[in-house]
Design a protein around this nucleic acid. Structure first.
Lengths: 235, 235
DNA sequence: GTAACTTTGTGCGTTCATTCACAAAGGGGT
DNA sequence: ACCCCTTTGTGAATGAACGCACAAAGTTAC
């Protein structure tokens, strides 16, 4: 479908990265409203539900098109559809989870996947005591099957939830097998060829950022007794 | 310690948020180098290990002070210490994990916490079949004990790993009990009073962002047959 | 001691993101 | 049919982040 991009004069505006990162948040908020039976929402209300400034919300939505009605607001259901379409959630994405530790299990059981068009086609691990276990309706396969599973199911997104040392070699393998998007939970920076996207989620990094702000509130970094912050030497 | 902030003329420069978010990445890269016995590193090498541009790395580090040596580079161990200090990792932070599902378990067993000064003081859940279990050396407590545990242990960071519906009420309780930083894994936008920091990690949001880019590569959003992207009506 | 070389730290122009503030657009009441 | 009220969509202003490119600073070799 969509055999080629419309290459005529009016190209689809590139949506800013910052906006793309917020669209899923809006989507979540909208689905919450929908469940509560709300049919129409103003930018002010939706912005507040999503935790952003309303002008920012309107500008974000304006990048998708003009889907609001002045004096009224946005129709919830229609907006859900438009955002979903823009994010590519109206089609199905096939995912493989690599590494079946606690985190891999948590991911497999996470409801937020299936409901947004992500289908887990396989879970793989190198540990023989894990292979064969049934988790969230799937049987854990041996990592040897990696290429087979990717190709047979048309996996396009790999989720790497292994220890750090295993991540890069496995990443190389999934990329070689045709995967073009990787979600990395391992605590390493993956290097991938041009054209492959990697996003990294690092639990301890988030905590460290919190710690920084926490320290801020408490009065800045712990300084040596004697206490300069640091000296700008400009003689 | 550090009874009050140096309020004299030369205030500590505010470190840009984007820089703060990268410091943990540098720290991780540096620790990797240290383990490999590397004592000194240039901005170019470190930048490449961290996956960023070297000028950006140097500018980031310059916000902490002037810790490099021209013609040589940075001393790994010293830089580790300086970044750790800046992030507040030279002191201990006491954490409570709220919600002991798969994700809570994964977090409890995650090695990246203890090694960076985060001590898990308690794990709590509302489910009686989980309460009393021993996980990662801790006994799961009933959620009734929340306030007690926070106050007795001086918990300053709460990690919320509950279902969405439970998150806001629990967040209110931890904040009321004195917690000023929250790491939220629940799929909701938490509202908190001024002065409390919240960071959100949402597994499905990351996947959705990947899906967007994946769709991009494949030729843009799925359009209706007939195929305009959208119509700008400016009559 | 000096010259050649390496690498940091940063000034500056550019691009990206946020916010304000308002004109234009639509709905509803009379 | 008209006017008033609400809310969108967006110019324009401001601010944050990025990355180039280079002078200043330090090291090494002779």
């Amino acid at each position: 479908m969509s055999p080629r991009q419309n290459s005529s004069s009016t190209r689809k505006a590139g949506i800013p990265e910052a906006t793309v990162a917020r669209l899923p948040v809006y989507l979540r908020a909208l689905q919450g409203l929908k469940e509560r039976g709300i049919a129409t929402v103003s930018s002010e209300e939706l912005a507040s539900a999503a935790g952003v400034n309303s002008a920012k919300l309107r500008k974000d939505l304006s990048h998708l098109g003009s889907y609001g009605t002045r004096g009224v607001g946005y129709e919830v259901e229609y907006l859900v559809y438009q955002i979903s379409r823009e994010l590519g959630l109206t089609q199905d994405w096939v995912v493989a989870i690599i590494g079946v530790g606690n985190l891999g299990r948590a991911l497999a059981g996470y409801g937020g996947f299936a409901s947004r068009g992500f289908r887990v086609a396989g879970m793989l691990d190198a540990d023989d005591s894990v292979v064969g276990q049934h988790i969230a309706g799937l049987t854990v396969e041996h990592i040897d099957q990696l290429e087979t599973i990717i190709k047979d199911n048309g996996v396009s997104i790999a989720v790497i939830a292994t220890p750090g040392a295993a991540a890069q070699p496995l990443c190389d393998r999934v990329v070689a097998a045709g995967v073009t998007s990787v979600l990395n939970f391992a605590p390493v920076v993956l290097s991938v060829p041009e054209g492959v996207d990697v996003r990294k989620v690092d639990l301890s990094i988030e905590l460290q950022i919190l710690a920084f702000h926490e320290q801020r509130k408490a009065g800045g970094p712990v300084t040596e007794p004697g206490g300069h912050e640091y000296i700008e030497v400009h003689p």
